[in-house]
Each structure stands twice: as structure tokens, then as C-alpha cells.
Amino acid sequence: MSAVFDNLDVFLGGFWLTLQLCFLSAIGALFVGTIVAVMRISPVPPLRAIGTAYVTVFRNIPLTIVFFFSAFGLPALGSNADFLRIPVVDTIFSRMGIDLPYFRFAIIALSLYTGAFVCEALRSGINAVPAGQAEAARAIGLTFGQNLRHVVLPQAWKAAVVPLGSVIIAMIKNSALAGFFGVVGDLSNSGYALITVNGEPTIPIMIGISLGFLIMTVPLGVLLDRIEKRRAVAR
């Protein structure tokens, strides 16, 4: 394991970048997913159709292809995803502001892909709200927006926490792909480079990468299990 400790700074740097990527993509995915979920339950048929199509496409396509499109398709459209260079945010997350766009592409790919799953998790939460709640809200004359904002979503959120958590865990795991699509220096990429470029021994380095991901995913998973168990008892 000395190979890991000798390169500890590389691993820590990679861990930090992966964490940044996951944090930003999670925000993006929650944003996209909420919009799509509202579209899918809205009273406007075309919006519903768009939402359904979005979910169908992104749930059934491999993330690898989504990464291909964002890494090779966006440049073809002449975009470097510069809209993600948000003034204050890119001083905190310095990778967002640099000229090399692959970090931004990775955020877009992960957000779009995970957004579809977030939408489904939210929808399952909304469906868990007893129908009487929404009916009562309508009976006292709340509009669709008011109904969602004041009655349905606050309750749906509770039922959606656990599925949302598993979606986010899946996203953290999926972020390992970013290192193979041009993002330099995240956990998978820097570890892979240690093996292929620096010729470090394979197995210790791979264990190091694995530990990095496990540190992120296992505590989250345990937390979710506990929330779920407490819910089950409460019912």
C-alpha cells in the first residue's frame, strides 16, 4: 500500500475534484429533475409529452453515450459550455472557469442523465401522497401551482428522500466515468494515470481509488438505510 501513501496528495486532489464534480452535478440534476417532474405532472399535455420523452431517452441510453454527446457534440455546436462560468461560483470551484471545457461537459452530462432519475424519484414521492390531500386542496380552490407548492410537494419530499438518495449515490458512482472523458485529475483519472503513466503497481492504486469512492458512497448508503428503517417503524 506504500504506493498509495506515496501518492497521497494525488489521491486527495482527485478525491476533492470528484467531490466538486458530484456536488455541482447533484445540484444540476436536482434542478433538471424537478423541472421535468413538474412538466410530467402538469395539466398541459405537450409539456407532459416532452417530460415523458426526456425521461424515456435518458433512462434508456448508456451514460457513456451521453458523455460522448456532451464531449463531442457540444463543441460541434460551437459551444464550450461557457454559460457554466458563473462569476462567483467559478472562484470557489476553479475548474468551472478554466478554458478546458471538459469539467463543464462532465457536469452537463451527469446532470442531464441523472435528472431523468431524479424526476422519477420525485414522481414516486408525489404518488405516495394520499390522493385525499390533493383533492382537498383542489376543493378549497387552490390552483395547480398552489396545490403543488403548499400541499403536495412538502409531503412528497419526505417520501422522495430515500429514492433521491439512491439516485445521488448512483450519480457519485457514475462520476467515475468523467475521468475517461477528458476530465483531468479526478479520482479515476489521476489513479489511472498513476498506473499507466507513472508505472505504479496496479492493485494498491486500484484499491486506493476504490477506497476514495467507498468513503463517499458507503456512509450515504448507511444513512439512507437508517432513514428507511425509521420510516418503516413509524408506519
Binding site: L177, F180, S188, Y192, I195, M206, S210, F213, T217
Partner: peptide, 16 residues
């Protein structure tokens, strides 16, 4: 452990 690992990492681990 295997639930918490990305599949890519598992595959690359096995392969390398």
C-alpha cells in the same frame, strides 16, 4: 463494498 463501487472501477480493476 461492491454496492458502493462504480462499475467502471470494478471493471478496470478486474482488467488491470
Amino acid at each position: 463494498v461492491f454496492r458502493g463501487l462504480p462499475v467502471v472501477i470494478t471493471i478496470v480493476f478486474v482488467w488491470l
